[in-house]
């Protein structure tokens, strides 16, 4: 199971906490999927300072590790401020760093991301950067102190799955020991299984689960897919080949 900044986790699934029909359904999704980490978005819910208390206590009651995020931040300054609020509110050094560069695609701003990641790691934060699969960007993030990378599969909320298999495979090959998490873009369990087969350590989901007709069932489906994909990765799968390869020899078979 993945280790993030020295902390063992019991699951390869991280779940977001936004957009569920109700907190009860959110809790069911966690229960049935046994997700180990909950990401929480600070911006909207904190509108009135302590005003989101009841929702926070519902999230805390899930009994999973909390990973606050800086969702919806468009600048280094906003992201850093939000991270500080999160550290105070949730009493954790963890921060999922999102610095959005483009309002329509919600694509990360790689330059601002590296800058914010440096400021926050220097300040003692343990940063989980939401990034693209760009190798050089990921190297820069590691240089400034990130010990986890969270490349997107596809833009947030699209459900398009893993858009750049080559890029994700190269990233895995390049950062052999770094925990890598697919963040954003997954819509179906099969895509999560694929991420596991590529050797990724975990996936983060929100929309795919929260917006399903039955969020708890979908979360459980994803959990099974992660188990299947990881088992396959560990089992050293066969290589694909062009020619058919009979599993029983043809030569010498009795002619009927």
């Amino acid at each position: 199971m993945p280790v993030f900044y020295g902390t063992d986790t019991a699951s390869r699934l991280m779940l977001g906490t936004a957009q569920y029909p109700s907190p009860t359904i959110l809790a069911d999704a966690f229960r049935r999927s046994k997700a180990g980490i909950a990401t929480v978005s600070l911006r909207r819910e904190a509108a009135g300072g302590q005003a989101g208390q009841e929702f926070w206590s519902l999230i805390k009651d899930l009994g999973v590790a909390l990973l606050p995020n800086t969702a919806g931040c468009y600048s280094v300054r906003e992201a850093v401020t939000t991270a500080h609020m999160a550290r105070e509110l949730f009493d954790t050094k963890w921060i999922k760093l999102e610095v959005i560069g483009h309002g329509d695609s919600l694509q990360p701003d790689p330059f601002a991301l590296v800058e914010a990641a440096k400021i926050l790691t220097d300040d003692g934060f343990e940063v989980f950067p939401y990034c693209t699969e760009d190798l050089i960007l990921c190297e820069k993030l590691v240089e400034v102190g990130c010990q986890v990378l969270m490349p997107w599969g596809a833009p947030i909320g699209t459900g398009l799955g893993l858009n750049n298999i080559y890029g994700l495979r190269s990233l895995r090959a390049h950062f052999r020991d770094m925990p890598l998490v697919i963040d954003a873009g997954l819509g179906l369990p099969s895509q999560a299984a694929h991420a596991m087969e590529l050797g990724y350590d975990a996936v983060l989901l929100n929309t795919a689960v929260a917006k399903a007709g039955d969020p708890a069932a979908m979360a459980e489906g994803f959990a099974h897919a992660l188990t299947a994909g990881r088992l396959a990765y560990d089992a050293d799968p066969m290589e694909p080949r062009d020619m058919a390869a009979p599993s029983t020899p043809v030569l010498g078979k009795a002619l009927l």
Partner: peptide, 11 residues
């Protein structure tokens, strides 16, 4: 629809 009990005016 925001998870907050704040009754302050519209943002």
């Amino acid at each position: 629809q925001i998870e907050s009990a704040s009754r302050g005016s519209v943002t």
